[in-house]
Design a protein around this nucleic acid. Structure first.
Length: 116
RNA sequence: CGAAGCAGGAGGAACAGUCGCGCUUUAAGUGCAGAUUUAAAGUGAGGAAAGUCCGAGCUCCACAGAAUCAGGGCGCCCGGUAAUUCCGGGGCGGAGUGAUCCGACGGAAAGUGCCGCAGAAACUAUACCGCCCGCUAACAGCGGGUAAGGGUGAAAUUGUGGUGUAAGAGACCACGGCCACCGGCAGAGAUGUUGGUGGUGGGUAAACCCCGCCCGGAGCAAGGCCAAAUAGGGGAAGAGGGGUUGAUUCGCCCCGUUAGAUUCCCGGGUGGGCUGCACAGAGCAAUCGCGUAACCGGUUGCCAAGAUAAAUGACUGUUGGUUUCCUUGCGAAGCUUACAGAACUCGGCUUAUCUCCUGCUUCGUUUU
RNA sequence: CGGGGUGUGGCGCAGUCAGGCAGCGCGCUUGCUUUGGGAGCAAGAUGUCGGAGGUUCAAAUCCUCUCACCCCGA
């Protein structure tokens, strides 16, 4: 891995309520084992991870968000075209495991490349 | 050796490396600029960051404006502290064989209320069984006396002994208990102890209340500045309205009276940035001194997260820790853990919780 | 982050201030009535009062801690 290849700065995350609600309304969906991906074509890569109080305590929510963000960081370069995407982790009581999440994200990204 | 009590302490795996994120500083690039990109260095969650239960700082409400009422809090003593309902020490009461622990710990003799059921009777009156006396037609009934015993109840009229009597009773006596007042001694005080006089009236104040002391309200989404947007939008009411404390009064302040304050209804816009705010402080660490201690004082060193759809993450190796398995050994496999994530900042309290360590004390058993 | 509120049968609520057998409406079950259903009538079942401690003789009620849910804010 060359330095600088797998960066994921903060300003790539989607922050506006307007952007996110538009993405959720019009985007297409792909399901993984641990999350649902909503995506649409865009000029520039952008991501959002949506966790709510349904996902557990503050520690658990932080942990989920960080693990998903790390997975996106590692596999972002496999995408062939820029996409805007939102990840909706599924609710369960299990302890989040990074390997499972990482593999899941990799598989879903491959599916995303097959579309169009 | 076993059981138990108390007082603390350590860690939140360590080291090395790779990738990544936030912030600060510096340098370089781009740009008129706001900014933005890259690199380097520094730095980056807790003992509870939590609950938001207390106490403060800070900000606004005119400078906590004044009075009365309402409301709230606290309640043995002394000390500590910026302050507290917190902390330390002591007193008293209770639990425990004990070390030790627990206590919203002023007043029920100022007044009011309540005390269901049961019971004769629940606080000022009374008697179911019983006991005693009298009368009668006598294993019973009626009248009277009594409250020692039984019974009811969470609670029953101050305890023990005696005198007394038909039987009994603070009816009386002695010694106690408790309360009030006046002293003596010890103590800084709570209090302890002791003497006198008078009294003897159940419980409940986390029921109202009384006594003493204290408390102005709201909160960093406080508050200040800038930018952007609509629009000096439409309709109705309208001469007073609003703020200042929960209420009233006084005082004060602000806006307004046809160029329309304010209220209601309808419709619409922005929901961005900077500051507050990342802190030289009731600061942290080490050490010395005073004090039983909380704490206080001196010296030296340090400057220690600052996000905002919200940074603090992932992986590899070694070591350590730990669990399981068996072929018991420099074995293998797994795990790296509980509770839990800063959001203006402190001091406490409370609640949740993993692993390990140290010291002191008590009780029991055995041996000497 | 800050402020405030609510938890009581299956559902919606009263009772909490002022402590003393835990109630009301709808629903549910059974029976009667009807050719059958509905309506009606009669009878009945249903509660850790969100949880844990404390005060009290006695707690849904008073006090403390705790859990869940809801509302408000520039």
């Amino acid at each position: 891995m060359l330095a600088g290849r797998n960066r994921l700065p903060r300003n790539l995350s989607l922050k506006s309520r307007l952007e996110i609600s538009r993405l959720l309304r019009h985007g297409q969906r792909i399901s993984g084992n641990y999350f649902t991906l909503v995506w649409q074509p865009a000029d520039r890569f952008g991501y959002a991870i949506l966790v709510s109080r349904r996902h557990g305590s503050a520690v658990r929510r932080n942990r989920l968000r960080r693990l998903f963000r790390e997975a996106i960081r590692l596999y972002r370069n496999q995408l062939e075209k820029p996409r805007e995407m939102a990840l909706l982790p599924k609710w369960n009581d299990e302890k989040p495991d990074f390997d499972l999440i990482r593999n899941d994200v990799a598989r879903v990204f491959e599916k995303l490349n097959d579309e169009l």
